[in-house]
Nucleic acid binder design. Sequence first.
DNA 1: ACCCCTAAAAAGTCAGACTTATATGTCACA
DNA 2: TGTGACATATAAGTCTGACTTTTTAGGGGT
Lengths: 233, 233
Amino acid sequence: MNTPGRGLHGRVLDTLGPAITAGEYPPGSVLRTDELAQHFEVSRSVMREAVRVLESMHLVESRRRVGVTVRPKSEWNVYDPQVIRWRLAGADRPHQLRSLTVLRSAVEPVAAGLAATHATPEQCAELTECALGMVANSRGHRLQDYLVHDIAFHRVVLTASGNEMFARLGDVVAEVLAGRTHHEVMFEDPDPAAVTLHVQVAEAVREGDRARAERLTREITEGALQELDILAP
Amino acid sequence: MNTPGRGLHGRVLDTLGPAITAGEYPPGSVLRTDELAQHFEVSRSVMREAVRVLESMHLVESRRRVGVTVRPKSEWNVYDPQVIRWRLAGADRPHQLRSLTVLRSAVEPVAAGLAATHATPEQCAELTECALGMVANSRGHRLQDYLVHDIAFHRVVLTASGNEMFARLGDVVAEVLAGRTHHEVMFEDPDPAAVTLHVQVAEAVREGDRARAERLTREITEGALQELDILAP
DNA sequence: ACCCCTAAAAAGTCAGACTTATATGTCACA
DNA sequence: TGTGACATATAAGTCTGACTTTTTAGGGGT
């Protein structure tokens, strides 16, 4: 599911990125390029490229005569897909999963509402197809097939919203849904009510009913929040 | 307001980044590191670091024997603050301002609702102070001072939500608000109704009234949407 | 028409020397 | 004892040139 690091600098990032996001180097820690290069057994050029990438993610700051200092978490580019993946892969996973689910609960209802207005006929068809796929795999421990359709469903909604910022959250939502299925205990079949809601959202979008699409999607995301014991409604 | 590029590679990015996000090199265009290095009069090492950063933003892809190819807009990391700044500085500005405003309309109400539950007494005080500052500067063409308090207000709300993803949108919202004041025609004093809404949001958060804070903030963001002629409610 | 082999092109990697900014310590002087 | 100017060491920044690796494209043979 992941793209392994291309090139040497990518491999360095594959271990250094997770280490930093996991808090292995606390904020304010100072690293030196030369030492890192020796440690990873790469040339300084390669190491410098890796540091540049970390710097563009605001994970570290590089200053002359000082070194490469780790920035506090509050300054990280937490929307960077790579940062999200690193955090989801580490000890921060539960926390990251929660904040992403809250983000979903804000974005997806609005996106669904917009989709009701903007979706093309093809997208409406895709949506219905996904919903049907969810129904078909909602019983008999077909969790993997269910998940595929669930992810596709939400991705289509976000894309059909016509908003580029929403569309780019498709991967994030995919990670969250996959995380919920795999990591959380999910022996049982999905909640039938949730399945029905997806079908109804597809309906509402197809009929161009903005308010209903938004309201129904809000019910879905509120369910996701409750699963993680977030907020008392 | 902006951080000029640190180091040579930063200066290269300051002109190459905007050029790419402005669509000056259409998707699929192929650049060669050596040529770019010559054009910008820097060494290949510096140019490579710049390319690495662009690559981490998913603006370009670097492949052997091919070169550095520009990726389609749909793959860009549109949440990267630098990418947002580049786009806001170029021809894409109106479009970017619209998509960000829609994002605001999804996120801020939920953030305000959470703030009502999570805000510390200090944050409540800050919020009230900002709202009062807005009131004080709402008449007599004090747009600049009004803007400062407006930005601070929304930043506090996003921070007080307790969600790291929301908190990091503070800069984005600041850009949008500043853009509205400076670029759009804004000779007149701000809408008194909007000012009142901010005061009321501060009240609701202070009283811990989650639903009311959310509803009032939604009114604010809907106003922002209407200013840009987005959606008929 | 198909496959394999060769060659070229561009990114990738490395090593070493040099430059520049800057944090810190030193010393003179008030 | 405190303060300011200055020297020094340090680590990032930059440049250059040589070499390696991957991958595309073309050519030749069946």
